[in-house]
Design a protein around this nucleic acid. Structure first.
Lengths: 220, 220
DNA sequence: ATTTTTATTAAACGCTCATTTAATAAAAAC
DNA sequence: GTTTTTATTAAATGAGCGTTTAATAAAAAT
């Protein structure tokens, strides 16, 4: 008994309609009537495919997160595994992918970001995404600097990504991809001059003089 | 005919109730019934004092923004006007003031941040606040580095502030004030080593080798 | 060819929302 | 001390919400 429903069109169609509705009227006013009218179908069909409005919203967020993840993966795949700087640029570039910067995606992102604080399922998705970004950065940074510094730099770069993204989201001009990459590349370049000498020897990842006792990656 | 209504308690009381309601149930579910019950008054009184729910929300955001502005002003007032690093630390410190980091303030902030994209009045408030931060930073940075670099550093620090703030807002551990200050101080320290020599002479603010032709402060 | 399952909708349902109305009581003005 | 203004509420109002129901038609399975 095969379980594939014929119209595999409906789900993506409704997810896209959700983003367009949020783009136009905001999450607060994006009712099932409005969303389904964007998709040209009946409101009741949202329950049929997603079990309710909440299910549709969660699926929409998942869709955006998956797209982001794929973008980063693709870019990483084109880098040599020992070219750390290129790989960090790939991670950053993936987060500033044109598709991620489309107004409807940006507005949907931000809506969910604020919504996540009061909806456990969205909150979990958000956290997974945050941790993955930090984790990707840490893997690369630890190849070239002590663990403590790597954590510090990872949370700093993550903050820069989110901060530039957030500021751009509310700017009439949108997000300037090239400026974003420039700021972060510049930051990384400066941090590289700070690597203690003995860490440049292979396999030496011991942190020296840890100024904080924090686990930065837990903090964020 | 004096115009001062007696209960000047009501407005702040309702604004505080609004933040508490948003903290507990989120903006989406913070109805006038819920908010007014937090304040222990009738829902109708919101219309009396604020002309409607929108007026109350705008007043709440104004209240938070004014508090932020005052915090920065106070800290700046305790700095010598030529101690640029201390003054930037004051601006950063004001943005990470304990009062601004209270959960109810953080959640209200974030709710408005996402709401602002679809509500012109909130959007304007948001923009004014963003521009003021950049402006404060620029005034200080221009004292010690070329204009182009100052703009670049200003938007970078602003992005760090917002990014750290945003990431912390969604972290179970909240925002780590000291780590935030450390990251930004560290960033600034590195930028200071990059100042071209002739700019260290007094009154020389000419930008050299502008790599971008952007006006960064417009971009954000 | 008949049955069963899936896709879809229009309409109804019950609920909650923000706002208005009408009324009352206290305060201020005169 | 009477009038006017202000503060406050309970109740009514009407619109909009997400979801359910009942019905239909198409597709798949038998």
């Amino acid at each position: 008994m095969p379980k594939v429903g014929m119209p595999a069109i409906r789900k993506p169609q409704l997810i896209d309609a959700t983003m367009n509705a949020i783009n136009d009227v905001g999450l607060q006013k994006a009712s099932v009537v409005i969303i389904s009218s964007y998709a040209g179908v009946s409101p009741a069909i949202i329950n049929h495919y997603f079990g309710g409005k909440d299910g549709l919203l969660e699926a929409t967020m998942r869709s955006i997160l998956r797209q982001l993840s794929l973008g980063v993966q693709h870019r990483l795949a084109t880098c040599e595994s020992d070219d750390v700087i290129a790989r960090i640029a790939a991670i950053v570039g993936g987060n500033f992918d044109p598709e991620q910067l489309a107004p409807k995606v940006v507005k949907t992102w931000l809506a969910f970001w604020s919504q996540a604080m009061h909806q456990p399922q969205l909150f979990r998705l958000q956290r997974v995404n945050e941790k993955r970004l930090i984790s990707h950065l840490l893997i690369e940074l630890k190849k070239i600097m002590p663990g403590e510094q790597a954590k510090f730099v990872a949370v700093s770069i993550a903050a820069l990504i989110d901060g530039i993204w957030l500021r751009g989201a509310l700017s009439p001009n949108g997000i300037d991809r090239e400026l974003a990459k420039h700021i972060i590349a510049d930051y990384l370049e400066h941090q590289l001059t700070k690597i203690p000498n003995e860490s440049l020897a292979k396999n030496d990842l011991v942190a020296r003089k840890p100024e904080h006792n924090h686990d930065y990656t837990q903090q964020f």
